[in-house]
Write a protein that binds this DNA or RNA. Structure first.
Lengths: 286, 286
DNA sequence: GTTCCGCATGAATCGATAG
DNA sequence: ACTATCGATTCATGCGGAA
């Protein structure tokens, strides 16, 4: 199945209004952070961040399907020696608007930005806020199961050796059932902490996250053919990952510079999807 | 230097009033989480949590030195398929009271509670909220430097063969005080993400955190002889760690049962501080 | 004395059932 | 309708006994 994402060059709030209500399965986005990236997006002052985001939040609520999910990657910056409160104020406001704040995932950035300050250490984590319209949202947990920890490997290795000898010695003693039980145990469900290194190779966009991040949430919250929206597309990481995974995708970007990069990335992925897919590093959870 | 902690049996809010203003260097505490530990503390309803905590917060502000730090370990629970907002409301209220919200550390709980639900994964992290009265607070960053990546791993592996304590061999990353003296080269500053397992063998208290947690913050925010306060002492982890590290300590606990456990632990540590110190596992940052 | 293995134990959460 | 209680589910870790 070959689906080319829809890329829209324009103002996020205006363009969202052209999208039908209840049509999107997953919104995954990383909006411009307050007052940072001045050179690119212009920057919104922290004190005005909530007022700026709420109208957009309202449109996102409208376009999301009842069982869809909105995932917001955000982190407050330190301003004047303090953490600003615009993120937690935003959570409160979005709840007033009708969003359910269902979960907060942590993205642990294993190779965070270097630096030293007298009053704080390097910031190695970001928030991944999950919002929903309904308590019963779609979630495909089996799609993101992972191998169990090292503790199990050692023990299962020993176990499987004894299993083999017994299996050779005796025939059809019903031991196979036990083995299959243990095999199930080789996979476990993940937690709400994601360990991912930032991709430093990404040249142009100043706020790129690793492909594995949208990839994980797209697997968790959508099926093939579902629709993924990124209203702050940037250089198109989320959109092209969705494309490669066989999801429909919509991306909105106001700056032609980034829009063009995203366009090229999408064309490239359309030409050789397998190669593009292999490029997605799945290095979650250590 | 031998300093015995001051343990107070009584109501937190009342007893705090007996402590002089501007006398404490570090407050490190983990108050009863909303509605949990019902069997022990009675539990506060999430909707009333902020109102319950704010008068205590006011007293904590009073007793803290201008350059001191308040570190609050807390996590909101999921209620009715949503994350409750009492923690972020608490942050807003404390700012109104005059606290600076300077940082939010993440405690990544490597061995979080198991379970499976249709709409969420296991919760593997807690907040460590840092509050201060003044932008220029005391912070001794050099005290918590850690060995860098690969070098540390190799070094520590060899080490565990030489210095054969059982616990070092087990997790492969533990190192004692004597060892850290060795490793003056190739040390780096940590980040604001801490990787620690909960100590589950502790039958004493239903909510004991690992000793390495208060140990790290006591090193970071206090010197020898400084005063550490834990207004919700529980079985006395914070207080006895502070004692072993040569800090003065004050602990308040309302339940005689826990108070007695803390009392015993303190007496034990006073008798043999070296042995007690070695028991503190420093296995931070993986 | 070391290594290996069995086992209990968590600051959990949801859905169903009962009052 | 709304609150209180209970059972089912799940996995990394430390401790203790055994080889």
């Amino acid at each position: 199945m070959k689906i080319t994402p829809v890329l829209i060059l324009g103002n996020c709030l205006e363009e969202l209004k052209t999208i039908p209500a209840n049509s999107v399965d997953l919104i995954f986005t990383s909006p411009p952070y307050a007052d940072s990236r001045k050179n690119t997006y212009g920057g919104i002052h922290p004190d005005k961040y909530v007022d700026w985001f709420m109208p957009i939040s309202r449109e996102l609520f409208r376009v999301l399907k009842p069982k869809g999910t909105f995932l917001l990657n955000i982190k407050e910056k330190a301003l004047n020696c303090e953490r600003h409160t615009y993120v937690i104020e935003l959570i409160m406001e979005m709840k007033r608007l009708g969003w359910l704040w269902t979960e907060e995932f942590i993205w642990h950035k294993k190779n965070c930005y270097p630096g030293k300050w007298p009053n704080r250490f390097r910031d190695a984590w970001e928030r991944l806020l999950q919002f929903n319209k309904d308590k019963k949202f779609n979630m495909y947990q089996n799609e993101v199961m992972q191998p169990t920890g090292d503790w199990a490997k050692n023990r299962l290795r020993n176990l499987s050796e004894t299993d083999k000898t017994r299996d050779n010695a005796k025939n059809g003693s019903g031991f196979g059932k036990n083995v299959s039980n243990w095999l199930k145990r080789e996979m476990a469900y993940p937690t709400n902490v994601l360990h991912l290194a930032t991709e430093c190779g990404n040249k142009n966009h100043s706020a790129a996250f690793p492909k594995a991040l949208p990839e994980w949430f797209i697997r968790l919250f959508t099926k093939e053919g579902d629709c993924v929206l990124d209203p702050f597309m940037g250089s198109g990481t989320t959109v092209s990952v969705a494309q490669i995974m066989g999801r429909r995708a919509i991306g909105i970007e106001i700056l032609p510079e980034y829009f063009n990069i995203a366009q090229r990335q999408v064309n490239l992925a359309a030409k050789n999807p397998k190669k593009a897919y292999e490029k997605i590093q799945i290095s979650l959870f250590r």
